[in-house]
Simulated scan of single mutants.
Amino acid sequence: MSLHNKPKSEMSPEALQKLKEEEFNAGPLSVLTQSVKSNTQVHINCRNNKKLLGRVKAFDRHCNMVLERRM
């Protein structure tokens, strides 16, 4: 059974860590990971039709982010 098919409650701490790393290094979250590592700016479209331009300092798997903007 692969890591993606197994319930998280049945995974070992090592398997959970491996899954977390895989989530952040592949797929959509990898764009944010690369942005943090390279300190590049990202353009974010918010739900209320506002747009933000800033540098991502931190984020989580739910896409909560800490952004740095210059005024």
Rank of each mutant, 00 (worst) to 15 (best):
F24Q: 01
F24T: 03
N25I: 05
N25M: 08
N25C: 07
A26N: 15
A26I: 09
G27L: 03
G27Q: 00
G27K: 02
P28E: 07
P28N: 09
L29G: 03
L29R: 02
L29M: 08
L29F: 02
L29C: 04
S30E: 07
V31L: 15
V31I: 15
L32E: 02
T33H: 01
T33Q: 06
T33F: 03
T33C: 06
T33V: 02
T33Y: 01
Q34M: 10
Q34I: 06
Q34F: 06
Q34K: 10
S35V: 05
S35I: 03
V36I: 02
V36T: 00
V36F: 00
K37H: 11
S38A: 12
S38K: 10
T40W: 07
T40C: 11
T40M: 11
Q41I: 09
Q41F: 09
Q41M: 14
V42S: 04
H43V: 13
H43E: 11
H43G: 08
I44N: 04
N45L: 15
N45A: 14
C46E: 07
R47I: 14
R47A: 15
R47N: 14
R47S: 15
N48M: 10
N48Q: 07
N49M: 09
N49R: 08
N49G: 04
N49I: 06
N49S: 13
K50Q: 10
K50S: 13
K51P: 03
K51I: 14
K51T: 13
L52V: 08
L52M: 10
L52H: 02
L53R: 14
L53N: 14
L53Y: 13
